[in-house]
Nucleic acid binder design. Structure first.
Lengths: 141, 141
DNA sequence: GTTTTTTACTTGCATATTGAAAGTAATTAT
DNA sequence: ATAATTACTTTCAATATGCAAGTAAAAAAC
């Protein structure tokens, strides 16, 4: 897959060149909340991503070093997707987006354990997720 | 313009339903860095947005309460776009995205006054921008 | 006060992306 | 051996993007 074209040298613009769409960050979200997922897991998320888009985004995210694909232990068909360090580094941005949505969009589910925990303490949530992801890394990677 | 369809009640997903594209947050960025802009100003940004996309995004952002269009003082053709409180509230997310880009994308311009200032102190930058925007609000709005 | 320019869009059209549905190929389970 | 899973790929219609050109109103220049 061809390298992502950058429209300028602005860090915001270049970030959006990579994940500025309606799906990429949802994949990152799922990996943040579940540590690792299979292809099928992603299709089961509430937003119902089409499989062609999913395949495309997984490839793009992998190309851009945000996720890593590993073999699923004991199964040659399945793959396991995880966040790379670069992907984990996206979590602060994801948290701020979630908080903005929670504050400003009425349809959002305020009772989610995720949002609750983040609101209680951003730093603690961050630390917890990072520890989880790191633990996973030492187990599998 | 019809209301934005939400794919789920997830705050991240719903946020992306509003600004999950390659252009919307660049408009917010320009308003964050310059307080207010005219239509023509936006077309002059480095990323060279097409005018049909610009018109569409300004409308969407206005529909979603993120920006506000005001008459340009002393000119009946021009309009002035500003961030609404909901738009100002997006700045923390924008900062995290910028920081991620700065850390993880090689082409990004590290010497920008914006990124420099944010890195020195996120809170101070936030306060400064918010004060600027508030000042503008009392002058014009 | 008439022409010229500026400003903020709109329109037309080719190309690219998205999304729904169905198809495929390699396992894995029965 | 047969059926079911899993991870994609393909097809195709609908929508979005991007470039270029057009328009209408107001402002500036002459």
């Amino acid at each position: 897959m061809k390298a992502t074209e950058m429209r300028s040298d602005c860090p915001i613009s270049s970030s959006l060149d990579i994940f500025g769409d309606k799906w990429s960050l949802l994949i990152v979200r799922d990996l943040m909340l579940h540590k690792s997922r299979t292809y099928g897991d992603f299709t089961k998320s509430a937003e119902k991503i089409a499989t062609n888009i999913l395949a495309n985004r997984l490839q793009l995210l992998e190309d851009n070093g945000i996720i890593i694909k590993l073999p699923y232990p004991g199964n040659k068909v399945k793959g396991l997707y995880r966040l790379s360090p670069k992907g984990v580094d996206l979590i602060p941005a994801l948290i701020e987006i979630a908080l903005w949505g929670g504050r400003n969009i009425s349809n959002t589910y305020d009772g989610s354990p995720f949002l609750k925990e983040v609101k209680k303490s951003k730093t603690k949530f961050l630390k917890k997720v990072m520890d989880d992801l790191l633990e996973e890394e030492t187990n599998i990677g």
